[in-house]
Design a protein around this nucleic acid. Structure first.
Lengths: 198, 198
DNA sequence: GTCTATAGGCAGATAGAC
DNA sequence: GTCTATCTGCCTATAGAC
């Protein structure tokens, strides 16, 4: 897969992933073809098959890269040493970034198509959400300890509700192209967790 | 479209819609074919084209029927004359019904695929969500008047956040096949709106 | 690494017999 | 209403030249 390349970020494999990712986020895994990607890059589909054996392998690479980058973003939030509400705000902001260009979260889109995905892809999508849940649950526990957050029930359940709220808000905001809808939902979900007066 | 038929609910057009609806809810509009539906019904694709000129027309019929039925369910909730929290619970229960058979909400699935949908279909999907929003917003206002609900900001925004929370919960619950996740999210979203002590 | 050429299959769709 | 037969186009994928 073009292993030895000094200038990362612009070799062919990476550009294929970039275009394919955008297409999946906008149209779904069943809504784009090798031909779409090839045409946009000005190459042939045969060239794509050199870099990624098949659509399934391309899909796996997409999810893997996306999950890695997302984990890095979460680590970056952690590194700032913020209070729990600010961390949640940072998390929600990641979603706002995704919504630009009328994109859905890659894994949110793939979750919708889950039953049609190649097996390995499906597993990676599941893991993405589990990792998100774990990170959020930790932040929520931190908030409890700090007294900056208040909620009932297991942190993991609240984490899922929060993450689902953001995914659903993206899902509904995208058709109308209204970024503010996601922002409003983020605010609403956050205020439901924040202690009224610190 | 097979207009004159006494025994409604089992004529061919209806059975086509039933199978197609399930396939769209499970696999997406770009994840099923006329051949899939035809095979399951033991007819040919040519027969499907007799009832629905093309996939776009079939899709429109699917959304129209789904929206009509959903509106009827909401009217049924209204007819019971419940307090606002109970109405919201009734609304959330509609989503729980949908999740059975690993199904996504038809319009939630189509929202993901929005950018690939035939124009008319897209419009109908948008209208579905607008109608839902309006109904929820009214219930929320009722809750404010009753004193049974408490929230900040415009009712319409809260309605969107609530609806998005349920759609997102379905999206995330379906891959793991865990119905309880949706129930937990429903509870969480509701308690965020309910006045602590009446 | 990228190309041309092509295979083989499935997609949505239509014509016309029954 | 449903069928057979067929069309055209796109899809994923491969072989082999450059």
């Amino acid at each position: 897969m073009t292993a030895s390349r000094a200038r990362r970020g612009s070799d062919t494999a990476t550009r294929i992933l970039d275009v394919a990712q955008r297409l999946v986020q906008q149209r779904g895994f069943n809504g784009f073809s090798y031909a779409d990607v090839a045409q946009e890059l000005g190459v042939t589909t045969a060239s794509l098959h050199y870099h990624f054996a098949g659509k399934a392998e391309l899909g796996e690479a997409l999810v893997t890269r996306y999950a890695t980058r997302f984990a890095e973003s979460l680590a970056a939030i952690d590194a700032r040493g913020l209070a729990a509400p600010a961390k949640l705000k940072g998390y929600a902001d990641l979603y706002a970034d995704v919504l630009r260009d009328q994109r859905m979260c890659l894994c949110g889109m793939l979750a919708a198509e889950y039953q049609t995905l190649p097996g390995r892809m499906g597993h990676e999508v599941l893991r993405f959400f589990e990792d998100n849940e774990s990170w959020l649950a930790e932040v929520l526990e931190q908030g409890l300890r700090e007294g900056s957050l208040a909620f009932e029930g297991p942190a993991q359940e609240v984490a899922r509700t929060f993450m689902g709220g953001l995914q659903g808000a993206m899902l509904l905001a995208r058709p109308s192209g209204d970024l503010d809808r996601l922002r409003a939902a983020s605010r609403g979900l956050l205020t439901g967790l924040t202690t009224t007066v610190t």
